[in-house]
Design a protein around this nucleic acid. Sequence first.
DNA 1: CATGAAATGAGAGTAGCTCTCAAAAGGTGG
DNA 2: CCACCTTTTGAGAGCTACTCTCATTTCATG
Lengths: 212, 212
Amino acid sequence: MTPMTPAHSSPLTDRPQLGLRERKKIKTRTAIRDATYALIKEQGYDATTIEQIAERAEVSPSTVFRYFPTKEDIVLTDEYDPMMLEELRGRPDSESWMDSVRYVMHRSMDALLAEDPEAVRIRAHLAVQIPAVRARMIESMSATGRLLRSAIAERHGLDPDSLEVRVFAMSMVGGLMEVNIAWAENDCRDDLRELVDRALQVIEHGLPAKKA
Amino acid sequence: MTPMTPAHSSPLTDRPQLGLRERKKIKTRTAIRDATYALIKEQGYDATTIEQIAERAEVSPSTVFRYFPTKEDIVLTDEYDPMMLEELRGRPDSESWMDSVRYVMHRSMDALLAEDPEAVRIRAHLAVQIPAVRARMIESMSATGRLLRSAIAERHGLDPDSLEVRVFAMSMVGGLMEVNIAWAENDCRDDLRELVDRALQVIEHGLPAKKA
DNA sequence: CATGAAATGAGAGTAGCTCTCAAAAGGTGG
DNA sequence: CCACCTTTTGAGAGCTACTCTCATTTCATG
């Protein structure tokens, strides 16, 4: 949620060893985000202005921009990516690459859904409906893709900057992105874990055999 | 360049059977685009405003927005995609899927580079440097990905809306997008065709064997 | 408590983009 | 050639995301 948060500790305001200043910052940050989610639920994304968000969060518009560079960033917090990468790198060499990915994907999905399933769903829906949000999300995923490279390269003994590794990383990202979209398009009814598994199958082995 | 253009005919203003109105529209469209490319080359993307573009193209700002929904769209004309799809669908069933893709990619790259290599390069560079342009380009590529689905499904005898086909299409798109980025990051020095071939290899067969 | 640093608020300014409405230009039938 | 209808255009007002600056307030520290 904020730098140096141990990730799985329940997020927010407590944590006494931090100074008052730091605690206030965290509070403000989550106040802004909560206000945003609430307003979006009431009025939709486009109808929600920064001014309204600021008002409900009881800060000035300037402060909103001080905490989040863009409106889209308020709803898109992919602070989990670095931690996923960490975990991916920590998997034993004996495990196959795809198994490692599957494992880490499962774990982070569980963590996200455990902490705030509502937010995960809203985010997924926004990614489908609002182009700007989708764009920003893709941006952030390709940043993740860039980080992925080094992990891939380590495992496979390849140059992380080679075209092959780059392409492999981004095609994984693209495929997994599509899972998210497909899931949201079907109103988050399916089991995300199963969808991810099927996607990884396709990425690893290509399309299943003809049926017709 | 515009609906019902036979694609390889040199693009623009001539074509007598069209009414004066249509011809003027085409002229305006290319005037706006030319102005934009020129200004970007002089001052960079961000420093170039719609007002400047309008002025140089000798139209009003309103007209600019009438022709292009966003500033990014002025530089990003992927009007080739539908024609690629067409061609892809026209390839013989006997040819392997990847061979078909390779063939069509080669052809459209040749066409683009033949018509306006400068623009292709500027576009690629913008996609690397300007997040908004990159985002818009990805958007447009995933639209292409959606179209790709039906072609893939036909060839493989699968349901175009199945997760498998969706994931496959988007992972191809992601991988090929990365080729474009990598090419631009290396200043468009490499042979695009070769890069595409290597990318398709990776998408089809996964990463090459370990080297270390 | 005083001094310095960091966070905030207020406000002005820019630019992308939308909408409306009236004027102009292209097409068509008499 | 003219009158009529449709499409395109320009002018301008308006909204909002976002940036910058500067004065004020709020926390931290000796």
